[in-house]
């Protein structure tokens, strides 16, 4: 679905990504693990077009995405659920969801049907539909962010650390939602530090350390404990 080849991104003089290559497979959950500061969010922002890569390519089918503007990438169907900045806090839940459909220029119809479908999927959002998004709990905001991304009818969902700042029980709930989306056959690229949970759901994973992919494989093939330790601590020991 998405072929990322030798992507390099830097902030000023600091190189954050030093040539990252990986594949996001069609209809499955690809997970990127790695410690804090490894460059996970930078990679998401680079794919999403918020940051510009110095070099490298991001191909979707035959299309080159590297170099496109953020809004053009959303129009191609690559939609991000960002970390931290989840919702527009002063706007209502419904308005937040409708904002997700702003990219749909060609097929404007069906917004209200999609809205209904999202509210069906997340009954708790329906209860709070007219509330300001800033008043929702952390878990509800995460649901809202996922729902808003679905409103864009994404071909690929990029999710940046959905577990950040949530209580363990809420994290389980969010991962169940992610699992559901995967079972529906959606293509998801999940960036997580919580390797323990992510490996339960991932079809395929990569390990990012200090701006480079150091390891990749299927969860069944590897020693989870070793991997989890590296994902948290970023130990540079080769396995």
């Amino acid at each position: 679905m998405l072929e990322i080849r030798d992507i390099k991104t830097s902030y000023g003089k600091i190189a954050a990504l030093k040539g990252v290559s990986l594949d996001i497979r069609d209809g499955g959950l690809t997970c990127l693990l790695g410690p804090n500061g490894a460059g996970k969010t930078t990679l998401i922002w680079t794919i999403a077009g918020i940051l510009k890569a110095q070099s490298g390519s991001i191909k979707m089918g035959g299309d080159e995405l590297a170099g496109l503007k953020a809004h053009q990438i959303v129009e191609k169907g690559v939609v991000t659920v960002p970390e931290n900045r989840l919702v527009f806090p002063e706007m209502t839940v419904t308005d937040n969801l409708i904002a997700g459909a702003f990219s749909r220029r060609k097929e404007k119809g069906g917004v209200s049907e999609d809205l209904e479908a999202v509210l069906e999927r997340f009954p708790r959002l329906r209860e709070r539909a007219t509330q300001e998004a800033g008043t929702l709990s952390g878990g509800e905001q995460q649901m809202l962010a996922v729902g808003r991304a679905l409103m864009a009818r994404p071909k690929i969902l990029l999710m940046d650390e959905p577990s950040t700042g949530l209580a363990p029980i809420i994290v389980e709930e969010i991962f169940e939602i992610i699992g559901q989306l995967r079972d529906e056959g959606r293509t998801i690229f999940l960036v997580e530090q919580n390797a323990n949970l992510a490996l339960d759901y991932a079809d395929h994973f990569y390990l990012l350390e200090q701006g480079q992919v150091t390891f990749g494989g299927d969860p069944g093939e590897v020693d989870h404990d070793e991997l989890i330790a590296r994902a948290y601590l970023g130990a540079r020991k080769a396995s």
Partner: peptide, 10 residues
């Protein structure tokens, strides 16, 4: 940034 992620040209 979040607006751009919704497909808007800022």
């Amino acid at each position: 940034i979040l607006a751009a992620m919704q497909g808007l040209s800022v």
